[in-house]
């Protein structure tokens, strides 16, 4: 394999119901920086059925080129039909880097494509960079076995691929007059060639903890001691109209549902206010919340790493502090006679 045959940075544009997923737009922002450093074009590849109108948006968010494949078999995401499209494009145009959102579909597609291209794939990346001299993608993720990050490289295979966590990269401001090129490609495939069928899609947000959209999150950790004390977290959240989140240890203990876990293997959240109470601040947790606007940490250990990411920290016993906070908020509400709202 001649590595120099491969040029350009690509982003998988995931779409559902004629809407582009947020993470794809974020990756166009991140990909733009990589492409500029490497002095190559940034491309988005868009697969679907009648999705051409979305190409303009891909350009507005930073792409120079949109590779577009439209076909009835691409109406809903399916591994086999989508990978046919991606394989066709990747073999023909040979990008050096491909980024995918770490969503169920993005991960599924990337894993299958990596196998067929016999190339490396880094999962759940939270930091991206390139080395200009070697042109290597530096995809970093929390390492197993420490509060440290590991940078994963793929030296001898192309394209270099990574899935990237939603909400850790920033999308650019869309520029409606940005110019770009749309390249349409065809795949020859029949519905009978695809061994799975999507019979029904059910939107069910009731089970979601709504953490992703919450303005304020009260997140409690193992430091709350037991399930009974953990009720303080719920009470504070109720008082101020916040959503409740937790660390993995809390979820494993059965105090919260998995949907409420914040971190590398849970949700990434970016609320305006994030309370971290009785949480040590392990890196797997911190990567999921550090982009919150205003972080308040309460921990009895002054050296807990959570204080490094906190805007304000209180060193002390949560069992003492949280009831006082609840009382203060209740008093405030009683005095002014209102509810908390967040703008």
């Amino acid at each position: 394999m001649n590595l120099d045959d491969y040029r350009g940075v690509w982003v998988f544009i995931e779409q559902n119901d004629e809407k582009i997923e947020g993470v794809s737009l974020e990756l166009l922002g991140a990909g733009r920086k990589l492409a500029d450093k490497l002095q190559v074009p940034l491309a988005g590849f868009l697969l679907g059925h009648e999705v051409k109108p979305l190409a303009k948006e891909v350009i507005a968010y930073g792409a120079d080129i949109v590779y577009l494949i439209e076909h009835a078999v691409l109406k809903h995401y399916r591994t086999e039909s989508y990978m046919k499209g991606v394989m066709h494009l990747a073999k023909k145009y040979k990008p050096e880097i491909i980024l995918y959102g770490a969503t169920p579909n993005g991960k599924d597609l990337a894993s299958a494509v990596a196998t067929d291209l016999s190339t490396g794939l880094t999962a759940d990346t939270t930091m991206l960079d390139v080395d200009i001299d070697s042109r290597l993608l530096e995809a970093s993720r929390p390492a197993f076995g420490g509060n440290i990050m590991a940078t994963i490289l793929c030296k001898k295979h192309r394209p270099q691929m990574a899935t990237v966590r939603p909400k850790v990269m920033k999308a650019l401001e869309p520029d409606a007059i940005r110019l770009g090129k749309i390249i349409e490609e065809k795949i020859s495939v029949e519905e009978e060639d695809i061994r799975t069928k999507v019979l029904q899609i059910v939107n069910d947000v009731t089970k979601k903890a709504n953490l992703a959209d919450a303005h304020v999150i009260v997140c409690g950790g193992k430091g709350m001691g037991d399930l009974q004390n953990y009720q303080l977290i719920h009470e504070l959240a109720d008082t101020i109209g916040a959503s409740v989140g937790g660390t993995r240890d809390v979820v494993e203990a059965g105090w919260l549902r998995h949907e409420q876990q914040v971190g590398q293997t849970g949700e990434t959240v970016t609320p305006k206010i994030y309370f971290a109470i009785g949480i040590s601040g392990a890196i797997q947790h911190v990567v999921g919340m550090k982009n919150s606007e205003f972080i308040i940490a309460i921990n009895k250990d002054p050296n807990a790493p959570i204080f490094d990411v906190a805007t304000y920290g209180i060193v002390g016993d949560a069992m003492e502090i949280v009831p006082k906070l609840i009382a203060q908020f209740k008093k405030l509400k009683a005095e002014k006679g209102g509810e908390m709202i967040y703008v």
């Binding site: 880094t122 290597l136 390492a143 440290i148």
Partner: peptide, 14 residues
């Protein structure tokens, strides 16, 4: 294995 661990680092502390 095409992927290797390039380096390990402590993330820049905010």
């Amino acid at each position: 294995s095409p992927t290797i661990v390039g380096k390990m680092f402590t993330p820049p502390r905010p």
